[in-house]
């Protein structure tokens, strides 16, 4: 549709070109020119429309189907990629969370066991229901050991004699001059007052000492006065130094 002819070569003067342009610009409007103007208006209209379509979100609405398929394809692939990434991250999250839970549970359990073992090993003070046994007279270490064994059998969790904590390894000895030595500490010699404090079910502890032929009877035979007081709250405050684990 290019409008050209051999005549174009003959009119190659720049002034001619400008003059023609000027002539057209200031020509009187005619019916034919009106038609041209209408076509130009349509063109301008279309350009503005297209630009507004491209700038709007409706690009997809004007795309042809194969382009849409391609776009959909790439979106699908992207979706899959993101899905697998999401799965991986969820996995990691679950792992981290369960790990955290396990660590927290382990820490809590450790604390509980720490407390239990601390009381058993005598490195922690303890308090709770229990009995206070006061023996007055010629107490021997074997009498104290009997009492302690009886209390242990009755379920005593923590026992203290005077200011000495009694644990599994505590030795009861009689010194060269009949001293009473408990756990390496001399707590008395001959007649004197000894105080046993034991934590556990107070009624059970008390009756375990009072059974016929038990500690109380044999103590009386030996001339020792025994006073048992059941209390809802006693304190075992003596502690042993904690040993480092081997």
């Amino acid at each position: 549709m290019r409008q050209e002819s051999p005549a174009a070569q003959q009119l190659s003067d720049a002034n001619v070109g400008w003059r023609r342009l000027r002539n057209v610009l200031f020509a009187k409007p005619s019916r034919d020119q009106l038609l041209i103007a209408v076509l130009c208006a349509v063109l301008g209209f279309a350009v503005v429309q297209q630009v507004s379509i491209v700038n709007s979100d409706e690009v997809l609405a004007t795309a042809r189907s194969e382009d849409l398929v391609q776009i959909l394809d790439s979106l699908d692939q992207r979706n899959q990629r993101l899905d697998s990434e999401l799965a991986t991250l969820k996995d990691t999250k679950a792992r981290l969370e369960s790990g955290q839970d396990a660590a927290a549970t382990a820490a809590k359990e450790r604390q509980v066991r720490d407390a239990e073992l601390g009381i058993l090993a005598g490195t922690l003070a303890a308090q709770g229901p229990g009995v206070v046994v006061t023996m007055t007279g010629p107490v021997t270490s074997s009498l104290l050991l009997d009492a302690v064994q009886e209390l242990r059998d009755a379920g005593a969790e923590a026992i203290q004699i005077n200011q000495v904590r009694v644990v599994a390894q505590t030795a009861f000895e009689t010194g060269a001059n009949d001293e009473v030595v408990v756990g390496g500490v001399t707590i008395g010699k001959g007649s004197g007052t000894y105080r046993l404090t034991a934590i556990g079910d107070s009624a059970t502890l008390a009756s375990s000492l009072r059974i016929p032929g038990g500690v109380v009877e044999s103590a009386r035979t030996a001339g020792v006065k025994v006073l048992i007081v059941e209390k809802s709250e006693v304190k075992v405050s003596a502690v042993l130094p904690a040993k480092k684990a081997d």
Partner: peptide
């Protein structure tokens, strides 16, 4: 002159009217 005016008028019309181009025509625009 009138052609240039037509171009401008058409562009202005498109700007202010914002008509909906029929969907079937849009790929060819």
């Amino acid at each position: 002159m009138i052609a240039a005016l037509g171009l401008i008028v058409g562009a202005a019309l498109g700007l202010f009217l914002q008509p909906d181009i029929p969907l079937w025509l849009q790929p060819y625009l």
